[in-house]
Computed example of a mutant assay.
Amino acid sequence: MTVADKIPLTLHHLALNETPYPPLESVQKAIADCIPEIHRYPQFYADDLIRSVARWRDVQPESVIIGSGSVGVALQTLHAFTNGPDDEVVYGWRAFDAYPIITDMAGARRVEVPLTADGEQDLERILGSITARTRVVILCNPHNPTGTTVGARALEAFLDALPKSVLVLLDEAYMEFARDEALPQGLDLLRSGRENLVVLRTFSKAYGLAGLRVGYGLSTPETAHRIRRMSVPYSITEVARTAVAASITAEDELAERIATVTRERTRMQAALRARGWRVFESRANFLWLAEPERCEAFHRACAEPGIEVRLYPGEGIRLTIGTPDANDLVLETVRHL
């Protein structure tokens, strides 16, 4: 037996916060129907998709930005609002791995503010890190990788205290899983007159279209225009446009999927806590195990039967919620740790 033969085939992908389920059936049919046309170029700047999202979100088309996932919109935003290493981008850390990458790509300077001991973004320390060079602040709500949230009052107070010259990128990639009416919605903040705000959403998570790379941003028409000038022509394929158009008309199907994931999140959170693991309260489709001493043992145990989880050495584990069978296997695998 070779070394390769001893490496288990990965059976359960619980590391990248993907949905464990394929696209909705109506979306799969729409994708199949458009395949005969993929020899044609898509629209230069995804104008039809912009109009579809605008109608769906009840905003002006001029307020919508489309990109390659929400991270694509975020990168366009940093290119539009920073201009070299003298400009700063501030965010809590640890956070989504792409934040430092896109800050570097834009040529700006990273300012990484430690999270609180409870895995929350420290808004007071972030405000204290703002300087005359700060151009953009990124907030993630719910937060990746901890799943924690910023409440409405705290977020509004933060925005009130922030200089109007600083743009806020509010990353709501996991908002569909929050299911919490008290959680602030970026679109509501925009409608209340917040002008220095860009709200990021994605079709990669709840909608199950991670492989098609489509996200969108919402902002004022002036800000959106500035960001859209950084768009890459032809970057949204016709397959992606078709899938998104079908997805936003299948809200009932989607709600069932989300309910299944959130039920499993609650079950897994309770089961892991009952077994002595420190698990933060999550409003996303994953759990954060705040176990710096035991995280590597958890990761090794899961790898043995072919379960991928996300290890942050010396910090913790981010565990994506999978199917009930996959989640049961995780619980059984780590039972003796």
Rank of each mutant, 00 (worst) to 15 (best):
P36F: 10
E37M: 04
H39M: 01
R40K: 11
Y41V: 10
P42N: 01
Q43P: 03
F44L: 12
A46G: 08
D47N: 06
D47K: 13
D48P: 09
D48Q: 14
L49K: 06
I50D: 01
S52C: 11
S52P: 01
A54R: 03
A54F: 02
A54H: 03
Q60S: 13
Q60L: 14
Q60R: 15
S63H: 01
S63R: 07
V64K: 02
G67I: 10
G67Y: 06
G67C: 05
G69N: 10
V73R: 09
V73W: 05
A74T: 09
T77L: 14
H79Y: 13
A80Y: 05
F81H: 13
T82G: 12
T82D: 07
T82P: 10
P85K: 15
P85V: 08
P85R: 14
D86I: 00
D86F: 00
D87H: 14
D87S: 15
E88S: 09
E88G: 07
V90D: 04
V90P: 03
Y91E: 05
Y91S: 08
G92C: 12
A95T: 08
F96R: 02
F96P: 00
D97Q: 06
D97K: 15
D97V: 02
A98I: 06
Y99K: 09
I102W: 09
T103E: 07
D104R: 10
D104E: 08
D104N: 14
M105R: 13
A106P: 07
G107H: 09
A108N: 02
R109P: 03
V111M: 06
V113M: 03
L115S: 00
L115F: 08
L115Q: 15
T116F: 09
T116P: 04
